[in-house]
């Protein structure tokens, strides 16, 4: 839906602009934070409801659904991560469901929430022109979100490496693999550092790239007039796969990275 005298370029740019408050580094993307926190709270609230009532008796339908997800995550963790850890399974669950919900925002027709926000903001008197309101509703199309997730995982990778191998073990791994020779320590260190840093970078960029591209295609489809309806439907159906898959990949890789960090080579 292109309103008024917007050109397609303006339309796309408008859609890809975050609602930002502040300047420079200390600016905050309010829409990203708002939607992600809302979805995270929704996830925790709905799961907490089950957790409070959970018993070994006959489960209700919602409880069944939640338990299905929990068991799926639990199995994934048990398959990849050997050993006991209280953090990894809930971490994986949070990553999976939260990312899934954030990705799911992509399926809401691209104009609905931004338009609602535009006129809502205008009527409430926050802005003089509705076009000054920016609203990006898919938090995972914001690099801040994906890097927040992946850098947290990165921190955990380092914490787990040190916890399970000790500082010495970790340092040794960084300097004596893959070539076990003292003269090649700098080479090893460069290689290992790249390997280590590639993990959070690839995690964040993969998720961001997939969702950003998907969102962009939704925006392009929204510009083609009447035929956007079947096209939107077709792309949405396909996108369900991407949404689920990206959430799953992020979860799975987190588990794998942490299991690698916590076991000797």
């Amino acid at each position: 839906m292109i309103s008024g005298e917007q050109t397609p370029t303006q339309y796309i740019q408008h859609h890809l602009q975050n609602w930002t408050v502040g300047e420079g580094f200390w600016a905050v993307n309010v829409d990203t934070i708002f939607w992600s926190v809302l979805l995270g709270v929704l996830f925790l609230w709905s799961f907490r409801r089950v957790a409070k009532k959970s018993s070994a008796g006959v489960p209700g339908k919602w409880q069944c659904f939640v338990e299905m997800i929990v068991e799926f995550v639990d199995n994934s963790v048990k398959e990849s991560f050997h050993g006991k850890d209280k953090l990894i399974a809930p971490l994986a669950l949070t990553i999976f469901v939260w990312i899934f919900l954030m990705n799911l925002m992509d399926l809401i027709p691209v104009d609905w929430l931004p338009t609602a926000a535009m006129y809502g903001g205008y009527w409430l008197g926050f802005v003089d022109d509705p076009h000054d309101v920016y609203m990006k509703v898919v938090p995972t199309t914001d690099l801040n979100t994906t890097f927040a997730l992946s850098l947290s995982v990165f921190a955990l990778i380092i914490i787990y490496s040190i916890k399970y191998k000790g500082v010495k073990g970790f340092a040794k791994e960084m300097t004596f693999t893959p070539f076990n020779h003292w003269a090649l320590i700098p080479v090893n260190f460069v290689l290992e550092s790249i390997t280590l840093l590639a993990k959070p970078a690839s995690l964040a960029l993969r998720l961001f790239g997939n969702l950003y591209a998907g969102e962009l295609i939704f925006i392009l489809i929204a510009m083609i007039g009447f035929w956007q309806l079947p096209a939107h439907f077709a792309w949405a159906v396909f996108h369900i796969l991407v949404i689920t898959l990206q959430a799953f990949i992020f979860m799975m890789l987190t588990i794998v990275y942490l299991s690698m960090a916590s076991s000797e080579h």
Binding site: T145, A148, L151
Partner: peptide, 11 residues
């Protein structure tokens, strides 16, 4: 930007 910090804390 600072959203990164906010998202990390939320996470």
């Amino acid at each position: 930007n600072a959203t990164l910090i906010g998202q990390t804390i939320a996470f």
